[in-house]
Amino acid sequence: MQRRHFLGGLASVGLATAAHAGPYPDRSVRLICPYAAGGGPDLLCRELAPLLGGALKQSVYVENKVGAGGVLAAQYLVGQPADGYTLMLATNAHLIQKLLQPKLRFALGDFAPVGLLSTSCAVLMVAKSSPWQTVADLVNAARREPGKLNFGSGGIGTPAHIAGETLGVLGGMKAVHVPLTGSVEIPLSLMRGDTQFAFPNLGTAQQALKTGKLRALAVTSAKRVAVLPEVPTLVEALKSDQAVLEAWSGIWVHAKTPPDIVARLHTALNHAAVQPRMAEYARLTGSDLATSPSPQDFTRFVQTENTKMAEIIALSQAHTS
């Protein structure tokens, strides 16, 4: 019953009838980034904001609201006016958080999905000083000493957390999850030796690899990625399609936002996504730009992803403790 309530609100997206005065937008628009400055999602928001602003013919500025793996930002958006002036970068982490913690003070039906923006894989990383050259090396070490190795993530319920738990199940190994204050802390934690492996997103991983102090063992995409062609997929290493773990990003607004504003934002988002600046961002970070034909298509995508995330969480045996 609780899950039906969680999903049910999405069926009514596009049916809101709230009135709004004047042309939209007639003032600046906020884009809430749920994650720390300097990380992959933050960089995405800062590339997107001026392009979105250009399409809307109004300034769009980024505001970071960091906490609880994206939960703080989601709960904040629920409390904002449904007028289209507060947008949020949404990711599959928001679905994961709600699935792991059903009592959180937001439901999927509290949001109107505007459009998909990008997809990206994660990278299994270890310190360059570690003895592990392959996924098999890491898995075998963890099997020999169950519970000795730690893996870090940007917080409970983040894709990096789920990826680490999934590796444990598929690899038949036990490691300890260490939730950090944000995804930008993952590389530093590996360098310090506080954690022994982690799954930062591809954008964060690429920057971290430039230090020369970390090593990439695998990517979580279905196929190898062009920016790290020598790095195998986790599927290759574990021989399981369940090792494909890709993150996505899109834009959500308050569920009661008038449909014409949602449509206006969708058009602006798709316009921004095809600009050369975004293409260059995608090339440098290894992300794939992906847009939705309509807000309704993105809504269906989110519903499908929610079902998929529920299955992955059940597989990984992830929990909030």
Rank of each mutant, 00 (worst) to 15 (best):
V253N: 12
P25D: 12
P50K: 14
P50S: 13
Y76E: 05
E311N: 06
N201C: 09
I156D: 03
D297Y: 12
L48D: 14
G193W: 00
N140Y: 02
V235P: 00
Y24T: 13
V178K: 09
L51M: 14
P259Y: 01
P229T: 01
F111S: 04
L51H: 15
V235N: 01
G38H: 12
V135K: 00
I96V: 12
V60Q: 14
R277V: 15
T158G: 05
W248A: 11
P41C: 09
I261N: 08
S59G: 09
A122W: 04
D137F: 01
V114H: 05
R143P: 07
V71E: 14
A318S: 15
Q242D: 09
Q242H: 04
L56I: 14
P34V: 12
G69M: 03
G155D: 02
A142K: 07
G203S: 04
E230M: 09
L238H: 01
P34T: 13
L100S: 11
T195N: 08
V219C: 05
D42G: 13
G39M: 13
K213C: 02
F6L: 10
A122T: 08
L104R: 08
P159C: 08
S12I: 09
R277G: 11
R277Q: 15
L117E: 08
P50M: 13
G109D: 06
S28M: 11
V126W: 08
E230C: 02
S294Y: 08
L56W: 14
G155H: 02
N270V: 09
S28I: 07
G203V: 00
T257S: 10
N306G: 01
A163R: 07
A163M: 11
P200L: 02
N92K: 12
K223V: 04
L269P: 06
A93M: 06
T195W: 00
A290D: 11
P34R: 10
K65D: 05
P295F: 09
T233C: 05
Q206W: 01
P159A: 06
G172T: 07
S292T: 06
C45T: 15
L138M: 02
L51E: 15
Y85E: 13
K148T: 06
G53Y: 05
L209W: 02
L87Y: 02
Q2H: 13
L108Y: 02
F199C: 04
T233R: 04
G182Q: 11
Q58P: 10
T166S: 13
P229M: 01
Q97S: 05
L284D: 07
V62L: 13
K223D: 10
P25Y: 12
S189M: 06
A90N: 06
V176G: 01
A122S: 14
D110T: 06
T166R: 13
E280Y: 10
V78Y: 03
T17K: 14
N270W: 04
A19I: 08
D260Q: 12
F301A: 07
G203I: 00
G250C: 12
L104Y: 04
A247K: 00
V262H: 13
K98D: 04
L31P: 15
L245P: 00
L149V: 08
T307I: 02
P146C: 14
G115F: 05
G109I: 10
M1Q: 10
G152Y: 08
